[in-house]
Amino acid sequence: MNQTLLQRIAAGDLAAVQECIDRYGGLVWSLARRFLAGQADAEDAVQDVFIELWKSAARYDPDVAAEATFVAMIARRRLIDRRRRISRQIESGPTVPVEEIDVPGQADQVQAVETSDEAALAAEALGSLRPEQQRILRLSVYDGWSHQKIADHLQMPLGTVKTHVRRGLIRVRELLAQRQAEQREAAP
């Protein structure tokens, strides 16, 4: 089985460093720009994310998550931590008008397939949610809005927003777990 980029980095393969940046730099940078208000802060955050990736490369387990998912998880953790530290930016961060936010469609799924099987599964799970739930989950996980900000913007009780986010994530997780189980059963 071919080694993943993070496994190669853990083994000391320097060429994998640039490949990793080429593959995931745009993803992490785009997330940082959505989560944080200032360019300089976003650049520092991206550097933090990649330093964390270099340090944690040896801990990456492809049996638990696809590499892209692992990278996105590390990035999200760092960005959420940073944003909490500078909480004044939570409500003043970059915003996307709700009217311009699409639910996952075919174009998203094509992109997801290109990214990883897990992203495709997530798109499938998201597609099974009601449009309103999809929109709320997108505002939360992709656009990085706080639950309170979503509630205010959609004029919806905070508890309802939290419930939609929770149920949406559980649905995605169920599909991922189910597919992992199927893959294990199919393995020789």
Binding site: I21, G25, G26, L27, W29, S30, L31, R33, E43, V46, Q47, F50, V64, A65, A66, A68, T69, F70, V71, A72, M73, A75, R76, R77, P104, A107, D108, Q109, Q111, A112, T115, S116, E118, A119, A120, L121, A122, A123, A125, L126, L137, R138, V141, Y142, G168, L169, I170, V172, R173, L176
Partner: peptide
């Protein structure tokens, strides 16, 4: 649920901006 949120993030990701060159060199 952090993995689920990460996978959902990837599913929602339609466009990715290229890294600023100076940042890429730093990384």
């Amino acid at each position: 649920l952090q993995r689920a949120a990460a996978a959902a993030t990837l599913a929602f990701s339609r466009m990715r901006s290229p890294l600023p060159p100076t940042l890429e060199r730093r990384l």
